[in-house]
């Protein structure tokens, strides 16, 4: 199995040469579904170029790069990171709505930034290092 890290979490997928997945695994990992018109998510569809297909399977790394998003993998192809591209991130910030996130505290309790709507929030980072 290979591990894929992306915004939706960590996913285990069948390993092989590259990140080439079934349509079902592709949708599970990326949220993009294969339809007759191409790869679709919500109302948006993107044509799937022939170079992004291997038979019935989808070259997810190639598709992800085609969307303008970063891809990174280790040499063994055992771990993949599918990141968010600059345009998506910039437009999220430009709307000035604070990007939401969910993170645990020391006790493991998960807090979402959006849980604190209705209060002013001083969001600050720090580190031990």
């Amino acid at each position: 199995m290979a591990t894929v890290l992306c915004d939706s979490g960590t996913h285990e997928v069948p390993s092989g040469a590259g990140l080439v997945l079934s349509p079902a695994d592709t949708e599970r990992v990326t949220g993009w579904a294969l339809k007759p018109e191409g790869m679709c998510r919500d109302e948006l569809c993107v044509k799937l170029m022939p170079v992004m297909r291997q038979g019935e399977r989808i070259d997810v790394a190639a598709f992800w790069r085609h969307l303008g998003n970063p891809v990174a993998s280790d040499r063994a192809g055992a771990t993949w990171v599918l990141g968010s591209g600059p345009d998506e991130r910039q437009s999220a910030l430009a709307g000035l709505v604070a990007p939401d996130f969910a993170l645990p505290d020391l006790a493991g309790k998960v807090h979402r930034l959006s849980d604190y709507r209705g209060q002013k929030v001083f969001l600050t980072t720090w580190a031990s290092w």
Binding site: S84, R89, A92, L93, L96, V97, A98, P99, F101, L103, L113, S114, R117, G118, Q119, K120, V121, F122, L123, T124, T125, W126, A127
Partner: peptide, 23 residues
């Protein structure tokens, strides 16, 4: 993840967010 989402490059960096969730 927060540094990536907000484009932060150092610590401590902060963002002020109002009651409506607006930066």
């Amino acid at each position: 993840r927060v540094s990536a989402l907000y484009g932060m490059v150092n610590v401590p960096q902060c963002v002020w967010i109002d009651e409506q969730g607006v930066i």
